[in-house]
């Protein structure tokens, strides 16, 4: 397990490093000099020159990159050009909102998708199975921002069941959860469909396995067989799917945060891009990449915890 963890860590560092090269390259090729952009049209050449050397922009490119890389490793993602605040602080201020949003989306998709998949598998071929199948395909097919806009119009504007915008009162958990409900559903609902289909398929496969026949032959109840003996196995592909799907959820979060006017990384990046606040863009993307890598590692660890065969193969 330790060797595996180290390997995962190494892989994570490589992914993050590649992301950093790409980010650095992106900033480099974007037209417009960050220093003159930051200072605005009325800056004098001297002022620009001064800022350029303060930002290290007059150094050779590879030195710029290594500075960028190693200070990022130390947690220094630079400072916001105008306010002078550390980028890391700015990003971390927004991060919890996005994490809550994604956690909410995962909750929706898991809490609805897994039971629906199980029910469809147990009632395979029946009416319920067909309805779940059609709904799954429908929610997969519709883009999440469309669902975001419609759920906003229906549940917030027309029915007024849930608040439309914002993240809720600080410190008031109930209010924050209410504000979380719609945007996280908008992100998660497509995943409900994916997971329901995935669980159905792997459940059907597992229920055919000979160890399930053994469990039946030993007189275990259908309930225990379905939800303990079969689901424990059928759930594994879903965990992997979710680990990979996190990246996709993060990009849906950008839309959800804009539509629902929620604070968060997505909104931060969106606004930073529109004013060419590059250090914030880079910092936010980097933090998101690290988050993605960590979640993937967690998904793998979870698989190891759920599947002893994986555990053994790692030792």
């Amino acid at each position: 397990m330790l060797r595996y963890a180290l390997k995962r860590l190494g892989l994570g560092i490589i992914i993050v490093s590649v992301a950093m090269v790409m980010l650095f390259a992106m900033i480099y090729v974007i037209p417009g000099d960050p220093a003159s952009v930051a200072l605005g049209p009325r800056a004098t050449p001297e002022m620009i020159q001064a800022l350029r050397s303060r930002m290290g922009l007059d150094q050779p490119i590879w030195i710029q990159f290594f500075r960028f890389y190693f200070s990022a490793l130390r947690g220094d993602l630079g400072t916001e050009v105008l306010s002078g605040r550390p980028v890391l602080d700015v990003v971390f201020e927004q991060l919890p909102y996005t994490l809550a949003l994604i956690a909410g989306a995962i909750s929706w998709s898991v809490l609805l998708g897994i039971p629906l998949g199980c029910i469809a598998a147990v009632r395979r071929g029946g009416f319920v199975d067909r309805v779940i199948g059609i709904l799954s395909v429908a929610v997969i097919a519709v883009p999440s921002f469309v669902i975001a806009i419609y759920s906003l119009l229906i549940f917030a504007v027309a029915l007024q069941w849930l608040p439309a915008i914002g993240a809720g009162e600080p410190g008031n958990l109930a209010s924050q959860l209410k504000h979380l409900a719609l945007p996280s559903l908008a992100i998660g609902v497509g995943w409900v469909g994916y997971i329901a289909r995935m669980v159905r398929a792997s459940m059907l496969e597992t229920l055919e396995a000979s160890h399930i026949r053994t469990a039946r032959a030993f007189g275990l109840t259908d309930r225990r067989i379905t939800y303990s003996y079969a689901l424990r196995i059928a759930i594994l592909p879903t965990v992997t799917l979710l680990g990979v799907g996190i990246g996709n959820m993060v990009s849906s979060a950008v839309f959800a945060e804009i539509v629902f006017a929620r604070p968060g990384i997505g909104k931060l990046v969106y606004e930073a891009i529109s004013v060419r606040n590059y250090p914030v863009v880079t910092g936010a993307v980097l933090v998101t990449t690290v988050f993605f890598v960590v979640v993937n590692a967690l998904a793998d660890i979870l698989i190891g915890a759920l599947d002893p065969r994986v555990r053994t193969s790692l030792n």
């Binding site: 396995a209 000979s210 160890h211 026949r213 053994t214 469990a215 039946r216 032959a217 030993f218 007189g219 275990l220 109840t221 003996y229 424990r232 196995i233 759920l306 599947d307 002893p308 065969r309």
Partner: peptide, 22 residues
């Protein structure tokens, strides 16, 4: 179910797949 595994028990052909792997 009250008989299966209790009064009538079974050993199947495939030892590799007959036990729950997880």
């Amino acid at each position: 179910r009250a008989l299966r595994g209790q009064r009538i028990a079974t050993v199947f052909q495939d030892p590799m797949g007959a036990l729950n792997p997880v």
